[in-house]
Amino acid sequence: MTRRVPILAAAIGLIGLALALACGTGEAEKPPGAEAELRDERLLVFAVAYPLQYFAERIGGDAVVVRFPIPAGIDPAQWSPSAEIVAEYQAADLVLLNGGGYAQWLKRASLPRRRLVDTSAGFPERRLRESGGVEHAHGPEGEHAHAGVAPMTWIDPELAIAQARAITDALIAVRPSAAERFESGFAALERDLRALEHSFAVAAQELGGAPLFFSHPVYPYFIRRYGLNARSLHWEPHEVPTEAMWTDFRAALVEHPARWMLWEAPPEAASEALLESLGVRSRVFDPCAQPSESGDYLERMRRNVEEFETLGVNQPAVSGVQ
C-alpha cells in the first residue's frame, strides 16, 4: 500500500490527468428546507431528545426555533426518522445530541459534523454504562453487544445544568450577538434546575436508605445523584407483568424489601393492585423523554418532586411477602 509512485512516471502521467480537469466551480449548495426565512432571523435548532428541546427553548427564547419532530407515542431512544426528516436536521444551525449513544439513528444518518453539539461531552467521567443488552456473535469479529451508555442524563438536575450550559455555549458560538439573551435564559433555567435539585435532595434525605424499586432501568443518574437504595426492573407500565416476572419480583422483594415502585407512567390497574397486595405502592416518576400534553419538562419534574416527597413521609404498611 505504501509503494512509492515513481515521480517521473507520475509526472508524465500528470499531464493526462490534469487535462481531465476543466475550469469552473459551482456555488455552495444551500441547505434545503422551508425554514429559510426563519433562519435569517432566528437560529434553527433541532434536538434528539425532548429535554434538550426544552432547555434550548428556555435559553434561546425568541432568538431560536427549536424542533424535535418525533411523532407522538414513539420512544425517542428507538425512533428512526425518515430520510426526509434527516434532511430537515441537516438544515439546522445546530443539532443538539444527548450523547452516549442516545438516539441510535444518529449512527446511520448523515449530519453536518460541525453543527452537532454533544451536550454531555463535558462529563464523560460521569456517564454510566447500561447493563444488559442482547449480545450476538457472527462473522470474524465474534461476540458483541449493542448495550451502551445509560442515556437519560437529564433526570439528574446537575447533569441537566451541565447540558444546558453546553447548549448555551453552542448558541453563543453560532450567534455571539445574542450572548446576553442566551446567558440570561440559561441563568433562569439554572435557577429552576437548582431548585429542583434541592427539592429532590431534601426528599431523598427524608427517605433515608429506604429501599425502592424502579420499574425500568432509566433512572441510574437519579439513583446515583441521591444515593438511593434502589433496584430497577424491566417492567412496562402498559403491560401486566407475567407470572414469571411476579415470581422473580417476590424473590427480589425478600432481599430488597421496598415499599415503593416508581413507574415511568401510570401502571395498569391490575399491576398496581398486585403490588399493593405485596405491600408495594406505586408512584409515577416521569423521565420526561417525550413531549407531553401534561406539561413541559419543568412542570413534569416538579410533579416528580411532589411524588418523590411522598415516599419519605407516607410509608405504606407492610402486608407481608407471599
Binding site: 466551480t25 459551482g26 456555488e27 455552495a28 449548495e29 434545503p32 430520510a83 426526509e84 434527516v86 434532511a87 441537516q90 446511520r108 444518518a109 448523515s110
Partner: peptide
C-alpha cells in the same frame, strides 16, 4: 460545501 458542489437533481444523502 468545501468543494462548492451544486446539486443538479435530488437531495443530499441523509442515511447510510
Amino acid at each position: 460545501d468545501f468543494r462548492g458542489l451544486r446539486l443538479a437533481e435530488g437531495r443530499r444523502m441523509a442515511v447510510v
